[in-house]
Computed example of a mutant assay.
Amino acid sequence: MATDESLSLHPPTYPAAAAGRPSPPRDPLRRWRIAGLILPLAFLALIEALVRASILPAHLVPAPSSIFETLWQLGGERLGRHLGASTLRVLAGFGIGAALALLAGAAMGLSRRLDALFDPAFQALRAIPSLAWVPILLLWMGIDEAPKIALVAIGAFFPVQLSVVAGIRGVDRKLLELGEVNRLSRRALFTRILLPAALPQIFTGLRTGLSLAWMFMVAAELIAATRGLGYLLSDGRETGRPDLVFGAILLLALLGKLSDSVLKALEARVLRWRDTANDQAVSGGAR
């Protein structure tokens, strides 16, 4: 009978390629990645040229140079306070929401009874827009940090919970039968088969939840905040300063991209054992 070690989902290690065989490039997509970084800079340069040529109205679409000048005039300390406030709210809310979603999703994925009991309520709550939560949270929690973090946690909870349930339910039945043949305990079945097989979809849900956390953070700060990027958006709208509005939007895009890149790097590290069609295509060279 096969031992537990035979159930490892890690791909086997093959000997090194024969001497003289050309090794594949380390990153065949390097040129495309560089082009992906240059593309938004080229877009900003195009907007700058169109505004300078009076093709785009400056009072509606400010030149990127004026946007950067506005951010510079805010000062490092003042701008840092806004960035720090928004980032801390997202990290706290996303951490709470994702942790609760992982627990709830795992319980519902493993138990069809719990899934049948809670899924209708969760799907109904998931359809509620972010702004609809704001007056309720302000009424319950006041105007301090608690309602802002709670709103971010709500935004992060549902995509993560849904991905955990779908990931566990989508595990190949043959893997489960293999674990039962080898008489794995329920705990070993979860940790060695269900969880590794569901991790790719779970990480997809985490990345989606993180992006929604930034969106819900803006919704919270637009209404009840004295600092943060959402507050800058509201202040720019009320004072008629599109440069401040676009500056806050650019900072939100930058922070969202950086946070997603960190989570994507963590996903690549945790799931480095995978042997997928995409990995094979990359190792064989980009087309």
Rank of each mutant, 00 (worst) to 15 (best):
A16P: 09
G93F: 14
I168N: 06
G209S: 06
G95M: 06
L139Y: 05
A156V: 03
D119I: 01
A104D: 06
L74F: 04
R30K: 09
R89P: 13
L131C: 09
G167A: 03
F216P: 02
F94M: 08
A124D: 10
R112V: 07
D144W: 09
A2Q: 12
D279N: 09
D27L: 08
Q73I: 01
F43I: 12
D27S: 07
I136A: 04
A188E: 14
R26A: 11
L229R: 08
M1L: 05
L176R: 00
L271Q: 03
L91T: 07
A286I: 03
F94S: 10
R31F: 13
A19K: 04
A198H: 01
L199P: 14
L9E: 13
A17G: 13
L56G: 00
G93S: 10
P12N: 03
L83N: 04
P22F: 11
D275G: 02
F43R: 07
M141G: 08
E180N: 06
Q201W: 00
R21E: 14
I223C: 14
S234I: 02
G76M: 02
P64M: 04
A286D: 13
L114G: 12
A281T: 01
G76F: 04
L194M: 01
A268T: 03
M1K: 08
S6W: 06
R274S: 04
E180Q: 06
E5A: 08
L41R: 01
V134Q: 07
L74E: 00
G97Y: 05
D243A: 03
L199W: 12
R183H: 07
A146E: 11
G228S: 03
G93P: 11
A156P: 05
L102P: 10
G285L: 02
A18W: 15
A42N: 08
G105H: 09
R81M: 04
E69H: 03
